[in-house]
Structures are given as C-alpha cells and as structure tokens.
C-alpha cells in the first residue's frame, strides 16, 4: 500500500457514495445511466469472485464487499425504488458493444486460462469502458448536474491515481501488471475530455454543459 493507491481507493469509495447519496437524498435517478451502473456491478462481481478463495487483507475484503453491495444498491435504486425518475429515454448506449469486446479481449489477454483469471481480465477490460453509457448520456442531454460531475471526477481520478501507484510499484517492488496498466490508461484517457470540462466549468461555479 502506498499513498497513491490509498488516495485512489478513497477517491473510488467517495465516487460510489456520492452517487448513492445523490440518488437517495434527491429521491431521483435523473441524469444517471443505469446501464453504466449495471456494467460496474458486473465488473465487481466478476473481479471479486476471489473473495471465496483468497484472502489478502481485511482492508481488501471490506473494500470488495463494499463495492459489490454499493453497486447492487445503486442498480436497485435506479431500476426499482426510483424507477419513475430514471431517464431511460436518454440511456440508450448499447452495452453489448462493450461487453462483447471485453470478453474477447479477456480470451486473448489473461495470465492463465482459468475461469477466475478470465473473469478477472474481463472485469479489468470492462471497467475501462463501463462509464461510456454515462458519458454518452451526458453528451446526449447536453449537461450534467454538479453532483453527477463530482461523481464522475472522483471515479475518473481513482484510476488516474492508480497509474501513479503502478509507476511507484514498478520502481519500488518491480511489480508490473500489464493488463491492468493498459486498461487503466485507456480508462483514464476516456475521462480526459470530462476532466477538462470539470476544471473549466464546474469548479468555476457553472454547470457542466456539452457543446452540441
């Protein structure tokens, strides 16, 4: 554990809770892509199956359980409890366009040809692109509420901080995980456009609006 990794994890947890709290307190899922949230739930379920057979640390186990339960709760709030507020008409990104390529990539790039390793690789690739339905929705509606922007910023920062963590680990421990690093870089690049808008608009007190 190093500072970058810890800050990345804190940022990740913060993102998850910002989103849950926003939906819960406004009693509304407006502007949130349910499809992205389903993809994140698939990511956590596929990656954290190792909960059943490997123990790394209490911290690790607690975080894994937290991500699984929080993402399931988010999906439940969007599709069941506050279904009436969910903006399904604007949430039209075809998730098979990210599910199928992630699965194919997992069959090509993995550390061993076992079910759990394939699921792990699949989850890494899927996580990189799971935010696309949400970014697509923001582009389609042309704007995002400030809390949604904070959520996206925290979620994007998490993988960016992990990149610093990987650089640090490479030099201090010789640890190098090419699959996670490549996917993590792609994931961070996807947020770059959003980061720019966040800094130039949201941080200056304006609403995030995308030009047509």
């Amino acid at each position: 554990m190093n500072l970058f990794r810890l800050m990345g994890d804190v940022s990740h947890v913060l993102a998850v809770f910002i989103l849950l709290a926003k939906i819960w307190r406004t009693r509304s899922a407006a502007g949130i892509s349910g499809r992205s949230q389903i993809l994140f739930t698939i990511v956590y379920l596929a990656r954290y199956m190792d909960l059943f057979f490997s123990f790394i640390s209490l911290y690790n186990t607690v975080m894994k359980l937290l991500f699984i339960s929080a993402s399931c709760a988010t999906v439940y709030l969007i599709y069941f409890k506050f279904r009436a507020t969910y903006d399904g008409n604007h949430d039209t990104f075809r998730i098979e366009f990210v599910l199928v390529p992630s699965l194919l990539l997992a069959f090509i790039f993995h550390y061993s040809m076992s079910f759990f390793e394939l699921a792990w690789s699949f989850s890494i690739f899927l996580e990189a692109v799971a935010i696309l339905p949400q970014l697509f929705m923001v582009t389609k509606t042309g704007e995002a509420e400030n809390i949604t922007s904070h959520y996206l910023f925290a979620l994007g920062s998490y993988r960016a901080l992990y990149i610093l963590n990987w650089i640090y680990r490479y030099y201090t421990e010789g640890h190098f995980d090419p699959i996670a690093v490549c996917a993590g870089i792609v994931q961070t690049i996807l947020y770059c456009d959003f980061f720019y808008l966040y800094v130039t608009k949201v941080l200056q007190g304006r609403k995030l609006q995308v030009l047509p």
């Binding site: 690790n60 390793e117 996670a180």
Partner: peptide, 10 residues
C-alpha cells in the same frame, strides 16, 4: 511473481 498469483489491488 506473476500478477495472477496475487491480484492485491481493487
């Protein structure tokens, strides 16, 4: 060690 032996990150 191969990363697959320890997916110690989240």
């Amino acid at each position: 060690t191969l990363p697959s032996e320890a997916h110690d990150e989240l």
